[in-house]
C-alpha cells in the first residue's frame, strides 16, 4: 500500500475509468499538468496511467489519479504545495509549442510519449 492511502485526502471520483478520471481533472482544476507514467509523487507513489496523465492544481490541492487493479481509477486530492511547485518548475522546462495551450499540448504529447519512453 502506498503512503497516499495513509494521507489526508479528498475523494472526487471512485471506481471509474481512467479516461473519465483524466477528463474530470482537466475540467475541475485551476492548472493542469501532464506527466508520464511512473512519475513519482509523495516520495513513493509512481503514477499508473495511460499517457498523457493529467494532474491538476486547485488552490493548495494536488488532484491526481490513483489506480487499483480490482477497483478501477480514483481521483484524489491532497494538499501538496511542494508537489505543485515541482510540477510548475518541470512544466517550465518542457519544450513549448508555438500556441501552447495545455489541452493542445496534451493531444500532441499523446503520440510522442511512448516513443520518448522507448528510447
Amino acid at each position: 500500500m502506498s503512503c497516499v492511502e495513509e494521507m489526508k485526502y479528498n475523494l472526487y471520483l471512485e471506481r471509474t475509468g481512467f479516461k473519465e478520471a483524466r477528463e474530470y481533472i482537466k475540467d475541475n482544476s485551476d492548472e493542469v499538468f501532464y506527466v508520464s507514467p511512473g512519475y513519482k509523487i509523495f516520495g513513493d507513489y509512481y503514477l499508473i496511467g495511460v499517457p498523457p496523465i493529467a494532474m491538476g492544481a486547485r488552490g493548495k490541492e494536488l488532484i491526481f489519479t490513483y489506480v487499483k487493479p480490482c477497483h478501477g481509477t480514483f481521483v484524489m486530492g491532497i494538499e501538496a504545495e511542494e508537489e505543485i511547485r515541482r510540477l510548475r518548475e518541470e512544466d517550465l522546462k518542457r519544450p513549448k509549442a508555438k500556441s501552447d495551450k495545455i489541452s493542445q499540448t496534451a493531444v500532441a504529447s499523446a503520440a510522442s510519449y511512448r516513443e520518448l519512453w522507448k528510447k
Binding site: P37, P69, T73, W117
Partner: peptide, 13 residues
C-alpha cells in the same frame, strides 16, 4: 479498465 491502465503504464516505462 484498470488492467488496461496498468498495461499501458508498463508499455510506457
Amino acid at each position: 479498465d484498470a488492467g488496461v491502465t496498468y498495461a499501458a503504464t508498463m508499455s510506457a516505462i
